[in-house]
Amino acid sequence: MIADVLTQSSQKMTKAVEVAKEDFSTVRTGRANPALFQKILVDYYGTPTPLDQLASLQNQDARSIIITPYDKSALKAIEQAIRDTPNLGANPTNDGNIVRVTIPELTEERRKEFVKIVKGKAEDARVVIRNLRRKTKDELEALKSEVGDDEVARAEKELESTTKSHIDAIEDASKRKEAELLEV
């Protein structure tokens, strides 16, 4: 019973770390990366559709990406969605077959803004993990009458160590992304 609660909590915390890492990958650095476009939703026949479901993305060079839509009628919608995306700063061009996106060089000021965004995303992920810890503690407290105080105390120690390891994983990913952003 306690093992199930702890396992479920650990799985949710691991998922929160994965989501945080995905969020970090959407913050752009000086290089073009298809992950920047993962969360862009394109209005495709009235339905918000992820860009990677409508087109293939490939790096042309370090600063540009070529987006080849599977349906040529989606070109304008893809171009507009990229243009409307905040914090990307990219200006897409459409030649009738593909959309070419050139990522501009980041200024020092923009780099610092992006570091703040990464820190905010990291804090959001830490809050999610702390909320999961609190919810799991409540579940463990509810089991106290069935399994005893000692077992619950042991489980809470294990929960704390799991929580710390997941928060450390978010911190490490955040520091790597910050270093990548500040690298010129």
Score class of each variant (00 low, 15 high):
3 A>I: 13
5 V>T: 01
5 V>S: 02
5 V>K: 10
7 T>S: 12
7 T>Q: 11
9 S>L: 10
10 S>F: 06
10 S>D: 14
14 T>Y: 05
15 K>A: 15
16 A>W: 05
16 A>D: 03
17 V>H: 06
19 V>Y: 05
20 A>N: 04
21 K>E: 15
22 E>H: 11
26 T>L: 09
27 V>H: 07
27 V>C: 03
27 V>L: 10
29 T>Q: 08
30 G>A: 12
35 A>S: 08
35 A>W: 01
36 L>N: 05
36 L>E: 07
37 F>E: 00
37 F>L: 14
40 I>T: 02
42 V>P: 04
43 D>Q: 09
44 Y>T: 00
45 Y>E: 07
45 Y>M: 05
45 Y>V: 08
46 G>M: 13
49 T>K: 09
53 Q>R: 12
54 L>Q: 08
55 A>L: 07
56 S>I: 09
56 S>C: 06
59 N>D: 04
59 N>I: 07
59 N>E: 11
60 Q>D: 12
61 D>C: 05
64 S>Y: 03
64 S>C: 05
65 I>R: 00
65 I>W: 03
66 I>C: 08
67 I>F: 04
69 P>F: 05
69 P>Y: 01
70 Y>F: 13
71 D>Q: 09
71 D>P: 05
71 D>H: 03
72 K>M: 01
76 K>S: 10
77 A>K: 02
78 I>Q: 00
78 I>C: 00
79 E>I: 00
81 A>L: 13
83 R>D: 06
84 D>S: 15
85 T>Y: 08
86 P>M: 08
90 A>P: 04
91 N>L: 13
91 N>V: 15
95 D>C: 12
98 I>V: 15
101 V>E: 01
101 V>L: 01
103 I>F: 02
106 L>V: 13
107 T>G: 02
108 E>A: 15
109 E>T: 04
109 E>L: 03
112 K>Y: 02
114 F>M: 01
117 I>W: 00
119 K>Y: 03
120 G>L: 06
124 D>M: 10
128 V>A: 13
130 R>W: 02
131 N>H: 02
132 L>F: 01
132 L>D: 10
134 R>E: 11
135 K>H: 13
135 K>M: 10
137 K>I: 03
137 K>R: 12
138 D>Q: 14
139 E>K: 14
139 E>A: 15
140 L>C: 11
142 A>S: 05
143 L>A: 05
147 V>P: 03
148 G>S: 09
148 G>R: 07
154 R>T: 02
157 K>H: 08
157 K>G: 14
157 K>D: 13
158 E>D: 11
158 E>I: 12
158 E>T: 14
159 L>Q: 09
159 L>C: 11
160 E>W: 04
162 T>Q: 12
164 K>N: 12
165 S>I: 10
166 H>C: 14
167 I>T: 10
167 I>M: 11
169 A>E: 10
169 A>D: 12
170 I>V: 15
171 E>V: 07
172 D>M: 06
173 A>E: 14
175 K>I: 01
176 R>H: 09
177 K>D: 09
179 A>N: 06
179 A>K: 11
180 E>G: 06
180 E>Y: 06
180 E>N: 02
182 L>T: 06
